[in-house]
Amino acid sequence: MLEVIVVVFLALGVFFLFVGAIGLLRFPDFYTRLHATGKCDTLGVALVILGLLVYHLFYYSDTPLVCVKLLFLILFIFISNPTATYALMKAAYRTGLKPWKLGDERR
């Protein structure tokens, strides 16, 4: 049962990380690429670390403080990743990078 939970969490996380990477390659311009990475990376990282947290709870239950450390990591990524995405978006928009419209060339 435990191994199923851990493997499901890890597989979902790796799937979303892959979707983020493929979106970074496939989407036509900078703004749409950030759509893929800003969302999928946040959830993918959180899912992989959650899976490792369950693994830790059952295997190394003598050091529960490490779980708190991993939870801090998830919380920090949930706050910092959208903020970094927003900062990049704003910088690109202010410097006049034109968004891709339907029918344009790929950039």
Partner: peptide, 16 residues
């Protein structure tokens, strides 16, 4: 996002 990335035709229509 996963649907839009993995769909062969990429159903996107960006706007601000």
């Amino acid at each position: 996002v996963a649907y839009r990335v993995l769909h062969p035709k990429m159903p996107i229509d960006p706007r601000i």
